[in-house]
Design a protein around this nucleic acid. Sequence first.
DNA 1: TTCAACCTTACAGCTAGTGGAAGGTCAAGT
DNA 2: ACTTGACCTTCCACTAGCTGTAAGGTTGAA
Lengths: 130, 130
Amino acid sequence: MQIKAASLASGLPAKTIRYYESLGLLRSKRAANGYRRYSEDDVEQMRFLHRARSLGFSLDECRDLLELYQDPTRASSEVRRIAEHHLVEVNAKIEQLQQLKASLGELIQQCPGNDSPDCAILDTLAGDDR
Amino acid sequence: MQIKAASLASGLPAKTIRYYESLGLLRSKRAANGYRRYSEDDVEQMRFLHRARSLGFSLDECRDLLELYQDPTRASSEVRRIAEHHLVEVNAKIEQLQQLKASLGELIQQCPGNDSPDCAILDTLAGDDR
DNA sequence: TTCAACCTTACAGCTAGTGGAAGGTCAAGT
DNA sequence: ACTTGACCTTCCACTAGCTGTAAGGTTGAA
């Protein structure tokens, strides 16, 4: 099948498929006219990458996961290690954003939001510690 | 003062100060030898930007906030609108990450994490709906 | 034959910087 | 007088993960 069909079957945009190929994450055969040709197995890999990305794994992590996926001698502990590391980062990001949310919420509370120029948000950004 | 001193006084790395100048967020006078010279007011702007960035505002938002900060005829409602919009995005990001966290946590639970190749994480990425 | 719908490569742009190279300036120490 | 080190300058390249666009080639059907 050509790249468009593979895109529809996998959920990855055609541009992204080419991009992943340029990174060495995917490979493709070529037809006589130079068009990329994909098999069902290729589409399976694309779906794998699509799902891994949607779980927030980086492309480097996706590469490692895909390698493990294709290695029958893998140890699941390896996979778990990668996922746990990712989870740690997700948790850190959540905490950071919750901090942000609390700070922003407080500032917004204190800003009248009317026609006057007085604004607690700007005061805080300006460094008025009040 | 020169850029290094302004950097220390504001918390913005010198490289970032130059970068912001290239974006038109900051301006600088030049000494005879071509070196940038900064006043206390300039440092105040840098601190403003530093704080706004640490609250997660984009550079575009920072630009708008800085303009409002310097406009005595501003309405605080304008500032509040920007902050509220940002908060909405922060909340959306948090929700998305919490979804991720839940999915990842479940998968990790189900992966034995031993020497065997069987792994629920890979099964899910491969599309085995189980 | 011509048209749409494919396909190709290559380059630019997005966010928000950071790193490094190559070179200029200046004050202090020897 | 000379050198050293700490500054400073500009410019280009790189990061992540794509997306947009241009310029052109191929194919099947009306």
